[in-house]
């Protein structure tokens, strides 16, 4: 059975506060902070993108995995903000971390679910003895249209996991998935910003898929919410993961360790995977973890992990996720607009 052999996250150092964005658009910061349960979000600088953050998260994961990177035979990067429209992100990441040249490499895309897809496929390949070690990454530098509600939450970050056929730091007890065709959020070719269905992104989209995948998963492994020490759900804002957790019967304490959105924002493909890294940073051997992602369009991947005693040997080997979140430098809207390419420049 597959296990997480190493894990790592990457958070850019820059942040912008909700107040700073609201000020520009004449919006009420307090109502956004309350409505989204979010006070600030991470901002990538001009020289950062999905590829650079993936490399840093992967390097942290490899430090914890303590394996020779050339043993990695699958490299998957899940993102909806791959820097090239045509040319894989995974090849750059693979060369930068020094995986085998025979690594099977692909980019995944499924809105915010692309990272957990990469994880899902790695688990399958390891369990089927197709690869010895697989590297799965979820990373995004997503954008919301200026002034849109999404602009307050669309953030940047990455999480990486090395899977292998050993218990590692956490055994993968089970995987499960649930999807339907639901047009709640999309971006057409050549469009710069995504569009969304407003309130339609809630009940029939996020809540239905996350709740169904999680419920079916708990039935599959014959476990109840109280059997888990931690749960992490996709975090489009601070509010949704807490609400879906309560709907499913989880308590706040089970969700808080991996609840990063209030000070990180929505890192899309990196979201629930980064929450998982923050949980592994504090988990104890024997703890059970439920993770359920969500990608618009729409679907959820669900995982159950059991933490092993090896966690204590590796957690301090690379920067912890919340340590990275504590290190921050605030930027004003003008600098943020420059960093995010929102300013029209001369050719």
């Amino acid at each position: 059975m597959a296990g997480i052999v190493g894990y790592g996250a990457y958070v850019p150092v820059h942040r912008i506060k909700v107040e700073e964005i609201a000020k520009v658009w004449g919006a009420d910061a307090e109502s956004y902070k309350k409505g989204l349960a979010l006070v600030e979000k991470s901002v990538p600088s001009l020289d950062q993108d999905t590829i650079t953050m993936s490399v840093e998260a992967a390097r942290n994961a490899l430090k914890r995995a303590k394996i020779d990177p050339s043993l990695i035979e699958a490299t998957y990067v899940g993102s909806e903000s791959h820097p090239y429209a045509v040319k894989p992100s995974g090849t750059v990441v693979s060369e930068a971390v020094g995986t085998s040249r025979n690594t099977h490499c692909a980019d995944f895309e499924f809105a915010c679910k692309a990272g957990s897809e990469a994880m899902f496929v790695c688990v399958g390949l390891v369990n089927g003895d197709t690869v010895k070690y697989g590297l799965a990454i979820g990373a995004d530098t997503s954008q919301g249209a200026p002034g849109d509600a999404l602009e307050y939450s669309a953030a940047a970050g990455a999480a990486a996991f090395v899977f292998g056929k050993e218990d590692g730091v956490a055994k993968v007890v089970a995987t499960h998935t649930f999807m339907t065709d639901t047009p709640d959020f999309w971006r057409r070719e050549y469009e710069y910003y995504p569009r969304h269905g407003g309130r339609f992104t809630g009940e029939e989209a996020y809540f239905r898929h996350v709740a169904t995948a999680s419920k079916q998963m708990m039935e599959k492994v014959k476990m109840k919410p109280q059997d888990f020490k931690f749960a992490v759900f996709h975090q489009p804002n601070g509010k949704f993961p807490m609400k879906v957790g309560e709907m499913l019967g989880f308590k706040r304490e089970q969700i808080e360790a991996g609840w990063l959105a209030p000070i990180l924002g929505n890192t899309y493909s990196g979201s629930s995977p980064m929450g998982l890294t923050a949980i592994l940073d504090v988990a104890r051997p024997g703890d059970m973890i439920l993770m359920t992602s969500y990608g618009s369009g729409a679907g959820s991947d669900s995982f159950v992990y059991e933490v092993t005693k090896k966690i204590d040997e590796v957690r301090d080997v690379a920067p912890k996720t919340r340590q990275q979140l504590d290190k921050k430098r605030y930027v004003e809207y003008g600098v943020y607009a420059k960093f995010r390419g929102k300013i029209r420049m001369a050719d």
Partner: peptide, 14 residues
């Protein structure tokens, strides 16, 4: 750290 160093305009390689 691994970063973008330069790009060849908006259509060239990164």
């Amino acid at each position: 750290e691994f970063r973008r160093v330069q790009e060849d305009g908006s259509a060239g390689i990164i």
